[in-house]
């Protein structure tokens, strides 16, 4: 259990992303996570699938973007098992992997897996994690 003072400090600083329409034009990304779908934006003008999601396409400066769903299955490119130095409130070990999901790749958090089960090439699927205050963050589990 994290000391209350430490937790109050972290919570006050609020490092978790804003996820509502009031503060984030890309709130639909989080709404989709709540429904178990991994979405990102695709540029209607040049067709580029972008990560992270955008409001303006950095390739062609078009402001016309649509939501597109990434494939259900992604693949581990490389991974690391973090055994110390974790942020307060995170349970060790933490596993982070560089994941390929269709046309995009990014760092994802792997949950519910033993380190020895992991290997490059293993397939993963979205399993979002709800925060105590109701906000949601992406995480992935082995298939």
């Amino acid at each position: 259990m994290v000391e209350k003072l430490t937790w109050d400090y972290v919570y006050g600083c609020d490092p978790v992303p804003q996820q509502t329409s009031e503060f984030n034009k890309l709130h639909e990304y989080y709404e989709a996570l709540n429904e178990g779908r991994l979405m990102t934006t695709k540029c209607d003008a040049c067709g580029q699938v972008l990560w992270p999601p955008r409001t303006v396409c950095p390739e062609c400066m078009s402001g016309r973007l649509s939501w597109t769903q990434l494939p259900d299955e992604g693949e581990i490119i490389v991974f690391t098992v973090q055994e110390s130095g974790a942020f307060p409130g995170f349970t060790l070990p933490l596993i982070f992997a560089y994941l390929q999901f269709g046309p995009v790749r990014f760092i994802g958090k792997i949950i519910g897996a033993e380190p020895e089960e992991l290997a490059p090439g293993k397939k993963v699927r979205l399993q979002p994690e709800k925060q105590e205050d109701g906000r949601i963050l992406p995480a992935f589990r082995l298939i």
């Binding site: 972290v10 600083c13 690391t80 973090q82 942020f87 933490l94 982070f96 990014f106 958090k109």
Partner: peptide
């Protein structure tokens, strides 16, 4: 907190990713 603000806080830092994990992935 400061160090997770030194990576992409919205899409990486808030997941608990800081420099050690990033460079460990480069090492792997």
């Amino acid at each position: 907190l400061s160090m997770l603000g030194g990576v992409d806080r919205e899409y990486e830092g808030s997941l608990g990713v800081t420099a050690p994990a990033q460079f460990a992935l480069a090492a792997q």
